[in-house]
Simulated scan of single mutants.
Amino acid sequence: MILPRTFAFLFLCVFTFLSFILPASAAEFSVPGRVSQGHAFPASVQDIRPFTAQFRWRGESIRVKAVKYPSKRRWKADILLALPLDAKADEVLSISLHDEQHDFVVKPLGVRWPESVLKVAPRYVAPPPEALPQIERDRRRIRRALDSRTMKRWSLPMARPVPGGITSAFGGRRVFNGQPRAPHKGTDMRCAEGTPVKAAWAGTVLLAEPTYFGGNTVHLDHGQGVISSYAHLSAFDVKAGDSVRKGQVVGRSGATGRVTGPHLHFGLHVQGVPVDAMPLLTSPPALTGGPSRTLYERQPSASRSSR
């Protein structure tokens, strides 16, 4: 018969032995090694026990509580991150959980951004003095919206806001009336005036109001700093504070603001960084290549690989 004291000693020996041979964490990480400029990318970590992960990326730190996946008996924390369209140096993503930090290097790949030459009303190139207060107000309110950090509501793939193709891709430098301006921070999509515009993901309406350059614009918060925008609308179907479903109509396309004709300007910011939203229409998303092709370009053959 084993005495209680002997049993306790044997149990302690076995526990001590297992603590040496078993890993402190069975975490599995998913982080891409290469991402093109101006692209968003998902990163995640899984473990066999509950945890909260800390993602540190480009000076920002975001805590993500893991969600249980019953079918896999694992817990997973995921996040959407982004590389700026002018990124050149390698970036490091640090993921911390269970008091351990794991670092991953993400290498940016260059993209040859195009140039768009456009003709618009002169007041949208050289705004009159009376328009300056509204422009400054728009800037502050949009900046505040992009600073929102809430619980995750996005999921891949993203829903297409309108069925039309791309007329002006993300990232191209704009030249308005002969004057160079900042790169295009969204995707222009063909659609007739009054076309229903649908939410890319479930979210909360941060702004639904007229702006000087964007015309009638809706901004949706999808959590973790993922913000989508829908500009140049002819009408709103939502108001600030509304909760919307993925695919729900948020407005109707139009030609308000700085435009050359009716279309939807669809934008996506990830922690304040504008990105090309089109690669997120598939799951897994396209992390390399670009810019997204327009209706006016010859489509590549099936055998041609992306840059």
Rank of each mutant, 00 (worst) to 15 (best):
E100R: 15
S30I: 04
P161R: 03
A26Q: 13
G33H: 03
S283T: 07
S116A: 10
P274Y: 01
R74P: 00
K152F: 04
L132K: 13
G171A: 02
S25M: 06
A182S: 11
V218E: 04
P274F: 02
V31Y: 03
G225M: 05
E130M: 06
V218I: 14
G164Y: 10
S44D: 03
R153V: 04
D78C: 01
F55V: 00
S228Q: 04
D242W: 10
I166F: 08
T288L: 09
L207C: 06
H222E: 12
T260V: 13
S234E: 09
S303N: 08
F104K: 04
S44N: 06
S61C: 06
Y296M: 05
G59F: 02
G59I: 04
V249G: 09
Q37V: 09
G178H: 08
W57N: 03
H232E: 05
V64S: 01
Y230S: 06
S61H: 03
S283C: 04
H263L: 11
F11C: 11
K239M: 11
V197K: 10
A277Y: 13
G186Q: 03
G241N: 09
G272K: 00
G33V: 00
A40E: 06
P180D: 06
H102R: 15
Y212L: 08
D47G: 11
E209Y: 10
S155L: 09
L18R: 10
P128A: 12
L220N: 05
P210N: 12
F55T: 02
C13D: 01
R143W: 02
C191M: 14
K68G: 01
C13Y: 05
H269K: 00
H219I: 02
R112T: 14
E91L: 01
K185M: 07
F55S: 00
G254Q: 10
D47Q: 05
G251P: 12
S148Q: 12
R140M: 08
G33E: 15
L10W: 10
N177T: 10
L81S: 03
P23Q: 07
P161Y: 06
I2S: 11
T204M: 09
G38S: 08
L12P: 02
T211M: 15
G272E: 00
V125N: 00
C13M: 12
H265P: 09
P42T: 03
R143I: 01
Y296A: 12
V244R: 10
P108F: 03
K246Q: 14
S19D: 10
P284N: 00
Q134C: 05
P4T: 02
G178M: 07
Y296Q: 08
L295R: 13
F7N: 08
P127G: 06
T294M: 13
F17R: 09
S30T: 13
D221V: 09
R190K: 13
F9Q: 13
A202C: 06
I135Y: 07
L264A: 01
V250M: 10
R49E: 14
F20V: 15
A208D: 00
I62S: 07
T16K: 05
K152A: 11
V259Q: 09
H263A: 14
N216H: 12
G165H: 04
P42L: 03
G178A: 05
R112D: 15
K72V: 13
F51E: 08
A87D: 15
E209R: 14
F176S: 06
L233K: 07
L268F: 11
V273T: 15
K198G: 00
A40W: 02
L280W: 10
R49K: 14
A208S: 14
